[in-house]
Nucleic acid binder design. Structure first.
Lengths: 151, 151
DNA sequence: TATTGTTATACTCTATAACTATA
DNA sequence: TATAGTTATAGAGTATAACAATA
């Protein structure tokens, strides 16, 4: 152990604590940068996946987002109200609704993505491209632990 | 751009999205690992800082935790109810209350820290020590951007 | 005027449980 | 029996605005 690391308070050496604090910073800046009328992070994420996977069901979308189906109802409802996607019937299974982005939805998605990228580029300007890639890779590794948790 | 990075969905390349997903995984495992009666993450963090900085005021503690003073009332109240800290009057300024951990509070803090470390060691076992240190360093860098945000 | 602790309040995000209609 | 979408509800966690006491 070096002199430097020995003096770092224990709380600051926990991944969970740093993760939460960094998440709050990025999330706060997202909202400040995109403004009040913009898509909230989770709504933006959902729209992105609908654009990427046309005809996706709500259950599949919830699985991909890592949230419960019930939580998705309000998100999809907001996107439908904004005219950014449509719930389409699926022939052969009346239970399922295929989510399809409207042309305006695809435009809004691209537009939002550009603004999110700009916000991250500005906020994370202190990180090199390599550092940013490393960070994303490490976070992705943690995400993969989702299936092997305690309890 | 390599073939590999070109095929990664855009959402997956956003720091914010990966940060949130990883945060949910770690936070969920914390709760599963420490159990129902345990200190919630934010209560544990507050106690840790009170042990580390005896006589700290609520305002200073809120600043260190990056939350509002109003949000700290319930946290300190819970710690006091559990007998883990005391609010002490400060001679010279009747507005301020000095927070001091009780002996039991210090014990509970050490005990919780050991369990949190065990939970992180297990959950983050897929990361090498070096990767974990890198991750914390990168997250700490993002935390420092808290003061130079948009809006 | 400014600061400390506090209350009241609201908002966001998430989860659980139960329901319906289908399969 | 199981699945898709939905509703109702509750629980964290956070923020803002206002207040009394004190500086």
């Amino acid at each position: 152990m070096t002199d430097r690391s020995r003096n770092v308070p224990t709380l600051e050496r926990l991944v969970g604590y740093n993760l939460k604090r960094a998440y709050m910073v990025v999330q706060g800046d997202y909202r400040a940068a995109l403004g009040d009328g913009a898509l909230a992070p989770r709504v933006f994420s959902a729209l992105t996946l609908v654009v990427e996977f046309p005809q996706i069901s709500q259950s599949d979308l919830a699985r991909r987002l890592g949230i419960e189906r019930s939580g998705l109802v309000a998100i999809v409802g907001e996107l439908e109200e904004r005219g950014l996607l449509e719930r389409a019937d699926v022939p052969g299974d009346k239970r399922v609704q295929a989510l399809v982005a409207t042309p305006e939805g695809t435009r809004a998605c691209n537009d939002a993505m550009a603004r999110v990228q700009a916000h991250e580029d500005r906020l994370l300007g202190m990180l090199t491209e390599a550092e940013r890639a490393t960070l994303i890779a490490l976070l992705a590794k943690i995400r993969q632990a989702e299936d092997v948790q305690a309890g």
